[in-house]
Amino acid sequence: MIDHTGVIVSDFDKSKNFYRAAFAAIGYELLAEFPAAVTGHTDVAGFGEQGKPDFWISKGTPNVPPLHVAFRVTDRKIVDAFHAAGLQAGGRDNGAPGLRAHYHPDYYGAFLLDPDGHNIEAVCHLPAPK
C-alpha cells in the first residue's frame, strides 16, 4: 500500500498555487510546508485530507520524464471541478473530463499537466447516477 508520493517542481510557489487550487476540488488541502532550513535539503509542501499529507511537492529539478499520478474521487462532478480549477490555476489540459471506456465502462477521468508537465489525473470509477 502506498503511503505517500510526490513530484519535484521547478517553481515551488507556482506549483504550490496550482496544486492548492486543483486539489481543493477533490477535497485535498495544503497540510504541511517545510523550508529547506528545516528539511536540510529543499522546500517541500504536503497535500492531503483528514490531516494526513500523502502527496508532496519539492523544489528542485523536475522529474524526467514527468510523472503521472491519479487521484480517485467518488463523483464525476468532482472530476469536472478538478479539471476546471486546474485550468484556472494555470494547468494545461491533457484530456478533458469524460469516459475512457477502453479502461472500463465507468472510467471517468480528466488529465491536467502541472507547471512542469507532470500528468495529474482525477478519476471516478463509479457509474453515473441514474
Rank of each mutant, 00 (worst) to 15 (best):
43 D>A: 04
122 A>S: 12
9 V>T: 07
51 G>Q: 08
109 G>V: 14
67 L>W: 13
105 P>A: 06
68 H>R: 12
73 V>R: 08
43 D>E: 07
75 D>H: 13
3 D>S: 12
47 F>M: 02
10 S>D: 04
18 F>P: 02
83 H>I: 11
29 E>M: 09
40 G>T: 02
56 W>H: 02
18 F>E: 06
113 L>N: 15
37 A>I: 04
21 A>H: 06
21 A>F: 01
26 I>Q: 07
52 K>T: 06
70 A>L: 07
37 A>K: 12
14 K>L: 05
92 R>W: 12
44 V>T: 15
81 A>C: 13
89 A>C: 07
64 V>F: 14
69 V>W: 02
78 I>Y: 09
56 W>K: 00
10 S>T: 02
37 A>D: 08
84 A>F: 02
24 A>L: 06
44 V>N: 00
61 T>V: 15
26 I>L: 14
79 V>E: 13
60 G>E: 06
48 G>H: 04
55 F>A: 05
98 G>D: 09
70 A>E: 07
57 I>E: 00
42 T>L: 02
39 T>Q: 01
16 K>G: 01
109 G>S: 13
77 K>Q: 09
100 R>F: 02
51 G>A: 07
120 I>W: 01
34 F>L: 10
22 A>S: 13
25 A>C: 13
68 H>D: 12
130 K>W: 00
66 P>S: 11
